[in-house]
Amino acid sequence: MIPLPRYEQVKRHILEGIEAGDYEAGDKLPSENELVRELNVSRMTVNRALRELTEEGHIIRRAGMGSFVADRRMRGHAADIQSIREELQARGESWSADVLFLEEIALPKDIAGEMNRTAGDKVYYLLVVHKGDGMPIELEERWVNPEIAPDLLAQDFETTTPTEYLLAVAPLLRAEHVVRAVAVTPSERRLLEVSEGAPCLEIGRRTWTGERVASYARLLYPGDRYELTARFSPVGAASNT
């Protein structure tokens, strides 16, 4: 039997400690120096093990503080992301979708920065029109890191949404939303079935799994069919729950 590489042995040692309950969510793990001494391995080996555990979503590394066990139970809700199907069902509408593109492409230069990758890298691309009661409500254009969701191209996104699939296969660490009013292109206007000059809302959404960007999505909505709401509390305000 071929022995595991040393960094994999370090990963297994840490994961076994988490699974056994020696370390719970939020607990600080032994430092790199402590692991080097305890396991008799090099610092480079420990660093690689911790980096991969971070990328896989098992731990969180904080500069100057160390490594901590991630709370995987809460990750899917950390950014309060719902799929468009859930939003439509909540208001009593039926969801359907038309998948226009689902393929591997070279990452465009204008999207490379959003993905923290190099232009020309191979990524998965999809373009989907989501409908509520048969009326277009969201045009989803998304670029996905294939290392995060290697089976994405085999999915049927007319029976499930990309958001639902990605939340299931890639634990969500954090998300970023950028909201703006935009003028859409003629092709986007046709797909959303809006008239020329009609107001539209765009949400640029980046999601992370571990320290890697899992996907970047450009979501377009007709302004007269969709509204975005948020609730905030002042910093330090007392809870009234």
Rank of each mutant, 00 (worst) to 15 (best):
P5K: 03
Y7N: 10
Y7Q: 10
E8T: 04
I18S: 01
E19N: 08
G26E: 11
G26L: 06
K28F: 02
E32R: 11
N33V: 12
L35R: 03
R37K: 15
E38D: 14
L39Y: 12
N40C: 13
R43I: 06
V46L: 09
N47C: 12
L50D: 02
G57D: 02
I59R: 01
R62M: 04
G64D: 11
G66P: 04
G66I: 07
A70N: 05
D71F: 12
R72K: 12
G76H: 06
H77F: 13
D80M: 08
Q82F: 15
R85S: 11
E86T: 06
E86Y: 08
G92E: 14
G92A: 15
E93M: 15
V99G: 04
I105A: 01
A106I: 00
L107S: 01
A112H: 09
V123P: 00
V128C: 06
V128W: 07
I137W: 03
D151H: 10
L153P: 02
L153D: 09
T159D: 10
T161V: 07
E164D: 14
A170F: 05
L172W: 04
L172M: 12
V179T: 08
R180V: 01
R180K: 02
A181R: 10
P186K: 00
P186R: 00
S187Y: 08
L191H: 04
E193L: 02
E196T: 06
A198M: 01
P199I: 09
E202V: 05
I203M: 12
G204V: 03
G204S: 09
R205C: 04
W208T: 00
E211R: 12
R212E: 14
V213Y: 05
S215P: 08
A217D: 04
L220F: 07
D224A: 05
T229N: 12
R231S: 15
R231Q: 15
P234A: 09
V235R: 10
V235D: 14
G236Y: 06
A237K: 07
A238W: 11
N240Y: 10
T241Y: 15
